[in-house]
C-alpha cells in the first residue's frame, strides 16, 4: 500500500472526483415537467429524503448523468443515472405554511426516484 505523504496532501485535496459519466441515454424528464417522487424504502443507503416521498414537484435543473450512490454504497457499481433538481412548494411538502406560498425547497434527485406526475 502506498501512503499519502504530507507534500501530496494539498494536490490530493484539490483534485476533484468527477461524479459524472459519459454516454448518457436520453433523459426521461425535461425542465418544467411535473414529477411525483416514488415511495421507495430500500433497506440500504439512499439519497431520497423521507419528507419528499409521494410529493409532486417540477424539474428545475438537469444536472447531468451522475453515479448512483444507492448502489455505490453497497459495492454494486456506479450505475449512472440522470440527476435532476426538483422544486417543491413548502406547502406541498409540509402542509400549511406560514410564509410566502412561493417558498420552495429544491432537492437533487436521481431519475429512478421519479415518476411523471399523473395530473
Amino acid at each position: 500500500m502506498r501512503l499519502l505523504q504530507a507534500n501530496e496532501v494539498h494536490d490530493a485535496i484539490r483534485t476533484p472526483t468527477n461524479f459524472t459519466r459519459p454516454d448518457a441515454p436520453p433523459t426521461r424528464f425535461s425542465v418544467g415537467d411535473r414529477v411525483t417522487v416514488r415511495n421507495l424504502n430500500p433497506t440500504g443507503h439512499t439519497r431520497l429524503p423521507q419528507y419528499a416521498k409521494g410529493r409532486t414537484g417540477v424539474i428545475s435543473i438537469h444536472h447531468g448523468f451522475f453515479v448512483f450512490p444507492d448502489t455505490m454504497a453497497h459495492g454494486e457499481g456506479d450505475q449512472p443515472q440522470h440527476l435532476y433538481n426538483v422544486r417543491f412548494t413548502v406547502g406541498e411538502l409540509f402542509g400549511k405554511h406560514g410564509g410566502n406560498p412561493d417558498d420552495h425547497v429544491y432537492i437533487d434527485m436521481w431519475e429512478s426516484y421519479l415518476d411523471e406526475a399523473s395530473s
Binding site: 439519497r47 444536472h63 453515479v67 417558498d103 420552495h104 425547497v105 429544491y106 432537492i107 437533487d108
Partner: peptide, 17 residues
C-alpha cells in the same frame, strides 16, 4: 428577516452538487 413578498428557496444538497 425575510419579508413575506420575498420568496425563500431552500436547497437540500442530497447529491454531489
Amino acid at each position: 428577516f425575510v419579508p413575506d413578498d420575498k420568496e425563500v428557496r431552500v436547497w437540500d444538497s442530497t447529491a454531489e452538487i
